[in-house]
Design a protein around this nucleic acid. Structure first.
Length: 391
RNA sequence: GCGCAGGUGACAGAGCGGUCAAUUGUACCAGACUGUAAAUCUGGCGCCUUAACGGCUACGAAGGUUCGAAUCCUUCCCUGCGCA
């Protein structure tokens, strides 16, 4: 169930409450922390609570492949996580892209302006995925496996998340409008099949808007998916060559999605993205940035982000951010300690950094919620972005 | 004092006559990471040059042999180990 508590006057931003059939509750806008293998990398269950985490997203494809036959007797994601917050599962649709054309095209979802410049353009044989109108074939460790709408829903029902996602095809930013359009037809057919295949009543099913960064397919996508009886909606897919194109995609999509249902922005979540997304009416975001960058030593603060592995942090006695309330900063841990642990390849380094980053993003979302409730969201956005880009 | 092994760029450690400004690792500097193929990847790292090109100075020191030396020879200095 989704209840809107307050709408912003100057933008489409809103504050809401997401309540799950099993009892989990989240205040939105909210960050969804990525825990692909039913675990937020480096974090334990107790850490989730300490980081203000309200929602976690795991991955159908990865869990399906690792659990294998054990899926039938799976304990469920809440048990696996040891945590009773809201859990989502991605459908595996993104892996159609990330293991497929992403490798061949040498791109991410947001393509660089000059793809050849990032120097890792792959060969066609790097593409591990074959897509048909029925579903997708993956090459996984020499084994060929098949995933489609029905199977994805069935797996997600066994995994037992609160919110599950429709199986979709995420296209590459380098795909043509025509390819993108044909992929969109597949995604739409699969969306309807997911609705039909769904058995459990205690899970919410979100539809996914695709259509690349092209106006027509994207608009058609939003209109079509928005018209189906999903419990919520997600914006997915390749979002153009730059952030400004990404925001255009939101602008084209959002008006076609029902106001009263929750909207999720898939896989996007840097600070400026969050503000823009919220401004366009997004309620939840998931992104790998806080956890992955933490493991890579990159720490986020409201004064910008920095790499704690750099030499200037050796011996530094100050916390990551004196204003931060996370267990790491409040616990008296210093940049110097993080530096030493990262250089010693101590696994605790990644955990401490992850604790900080996850807390940072969850806390930022809380601040955003407050700003909306206090009618100062746009001002808060402006002052925060000015501050964070200052250095 | 004798014997043996060595002295290479911030450190460790390759190279053992030309393709060596010198493999590689670490450190250092810079950058990337957006529904996790990722606790990872990329670039730089003697000096001059925006950079390429080019030039200059370099492999303990000084000489020497060679068209050409970090690489061979001589002497000296220094370090480690063993014996006195």
């Amino acid at each position: 169930m989704f209840e809107i508590i307050k709408k912003d006057k100057l933008s489409r931003a809103r504050v809401g409450t997401l309540t799950m059939p099993h009892g989990g509750v989240a205040q939105t806008p909210s960050y969804v922390v990525v825990g692909t293998h039913a675990k937020v990398r480096t974090l334990g269950a107790e850490d989730l609570a300490a980081t203000k985490t309200q929602m976690v997203i795991s991955n159908t494809y990865h869990l399906w492949r690792t659990l294998g036959g054990k899926l039938d007797s799976y304990e469920g994601l809440h048990k696996a996580l040891g945590w009773n917050g809201i859990v989502m599962t991605d459908s595996g649709g993104f892996q159609v892209f990330s293991l497929g054309f992403a490798r061949e095209h040498g791109v991410g979802k947001i393509a660089p302006m000059f793809p050849e410049a990032n120097g890792k353009k792959g060969k066609a044989e790097d593409n591990l995925v074959t897509i048909t109108k029925d579903g997708a074939y993956f090459m996984d460790g020499g084994e060929r496996c098949y995933l489609d709408a029905e199977r994805s829903v069935a797996i997600q029902e066994k995994l037992g998340a609160d919110i599950i996602l429709a199986f979709d095809e995420c296209t590459s930013p380098l795909h043509s409008p025509w390819y993108t359009f044909r992929a969109l037809q597949r995604t739409h057919a699969w969306a309807k099949r997911c609705l039909t295949a769904k058995r459990r009543k205690d899970q919410m099913l979100y539809g996914i808007v695709q259509g690349g960064a092209f106006w027509l397919p994207r608009t058609l996508g939003a209109r079509f998916i928005g018209s189906l009886p999903f419990d919520g909606f997600a914006i997915g897919g390749s979002l153009g060559k730059s952030r400004s194109e990404m925001m255009k995609v939101l602008k084209w999509s959002m008006p076609h999605l029902p106001e009263e249902k929750p909207r999720h922005l898939l896989g996007i979540g840097k600070v400026d993205d969050l503000f823009d997304g919220v401004e366009h009416g997004i309620d939840t975001f998931d992104c790998v940035i806080p956890t992955r960058e933490a493991r890579h030593g990159c720490l986020w603060t409201l004064d910008g982000r920095f790499d704690v592995k750099r030499g200037k942090n050796r011996g530094a006695k100050e916390p990551i951010d004196p204003a931060c309330g996370c267990p790491v900063c409040k616990g008296g841990r210093t940049k110097g300690e993080l530096y030493e642990r990262f250089h010693a390849k101590d696994a605790e380094a990644g955990r401490l950094a992850t604790l900080h980053n996850v807390y940072f993003f969850n806390d930022l979302m809380e601040k955003i919620r407050h700003s909306i409730l206090e009618d100062r969201f746009v001002a808060f956005k402006k002052e925060t972005l000015a501050r964070i880009t200052r250095k």
